[in-house]
Simulated assay, not measured.
Amino acid sequence: MIAAVTTRLMLLDTASLYFRAYHGVPDSVRAPDGTPVNAVRGLLDFIARLVADHHPDALVACMDEDWRPAWRVELIPTYKAHRVAEEAEDAPDTEEVPDTLTPQVPVIEAVLDAVGIRRLGAANHEADDVIGTLSHRATGPVDIVTGDRDLFQLVDDTRGVRVLYPVKGMGNLAAFDEAALRERYGVDGPGYADLALLRGDPSDGLPGVAGIGEKTAATLLTRFGDLAGVLAAVDDPGAALTPTQRRRLTEAHAYLAVAPRVVRVVTDLPLPDADATLPATPRDPEALAALNERWGLGGSLTRLLAALAARR
């Protein structure tokens, strides 16, 4: 597991953030040889701002070792199915990614390693599961930085866990604590997972329950407490469900039986020990200098190193 942290821990949903960087920074930002590095430089600038604005003591760039785990697909075959790139029938699923983004991912990983920012993934699991595990193990406040609303389920005021969510590009972050979640969605952190699976999520290939949108899902969860309470109400003739709601929930029984395992993030992965303390100076200056020369990281790298140095 990550070494005990008693101060502020920041967890990055790295793929979510470099996708946003890729789409938020023009591809005219290129290396000396003309290769696009917009995702690389955009992510470095974003991390620099996070460090400067939110002052984490430790930071982990959480990675997708498996963006579409087979065990989730076995439970819900449509899970992220629309994102699968066309490959040979016997080839493993690969995510459909823009051609000019794919080559930037190894560069991002190499730069983070040379700077000394800890990267961590887990076999057969998504970055969400790594984030869930680390946030549950943390002994101090946690900031989760993600463009994926699924991680709202980890918000927990009693443990100081909140989500920083980019609402426009990379420059404007909304901080979601329990009050913000209730104001926006009508549920708390754990309730958000139940809301998501009832409502469905086309971006993840989750069908949801036909005819039950976000507002109805929130109303049902407020009325009956959680998904278990909603399902118990289906079997209770006296429960305050409309005939249509009762029918639709009954018809979705098979989906609702497996959806919680798919939607709820894993919080007990056997992750290795690691020091996630942010460095004041680069871990491998020579490697970083070579990467800077090769990829033309320029001001983006300078700003990140300045933000890290300012923490001393």
Rank of each mutant, 00 (worst) to 15 (best):
R8F: 08
E126V: 05
V209C: 10
D226E: 13
L11V: 11
E293Q: 15
Y18C: 02
T6V: 10
D226A: 06
L12P: 07
T139H: 15
V209S: 06
T139A: 15
Y192G: 08
P237L: 13
V258G: 01
H253R: 15
A122H: 14
V187T: 08
E65Y: 15
G189S: 00
R182S: 08
G208H: 03
V60S: 01
G229N: 09
E214M: 13
T302R: 11
A122G: 06
G298E: 05
P92Q: 03
R41L: 08
R312T: 13
D93N: 07
G140F: 01
R312Q: 12
T146P: 00
V262C: 11
L206F: 00
L291A: 07
T133A: 05
P243L: 05
D157F: 01
M1Y: 10
A52M: 07
Q104L: 01
A290V: 05
D273H: 13
V230W: 02
E183K: 14
Y192M: 02
A70Y: 02
L151Q: 05
A70T: 09
V130K: 08
D128N: 14
G225C: 05
A280P: 00
A196T: 03
L43H: 10
H55V: 11
D273Q: 14
P190I: 03
P106T: 08
P36W: 11
A4G: 13
V163Y: 02
G299C: 04
A233D: 05
K80F: 03
V262G: 08
D235L: 12
G147T: 04
A85E: 14
V163I: 09
L221H: 00
G296A: 11
D226R: 14
A21L: 01
A180I: 05
D273E: 15
A239F: 13
L269H: 02
L304Q: 10
T267K: 09
T216N: 04
D93Y: 08
T78N: 02
L198Q: 09
G189A: 07
T14P: 06
A122I: 01
L44I: 07
V25Q: 05
G296K: 09
L44R: 10
P202Q: 01
D53F: 13
Y185C: 05
H253F: 09
G299S: 14
P285K: 08
T146D: 01
F176C: 08
P282V: 05
L297V: 12
S16D: 11
G211M: 12
D57A: 15
A138E: 04
L291D: 02
S203K: 13
L181N: 09
P36S: 10
A58V: 03
D284G: 09
L12T: 09
A85W: 06
G191Y: 01
D143Q: 12
T222R: 15
G24C: 01
T7L: 11
Y79R: 04
D33N: 14
R184H: 05
R20F: 04
T222Y: 05
G296R: 13
T100W: 11
A218W: 00
L241D: 02
G211W: 04
G186L: 14
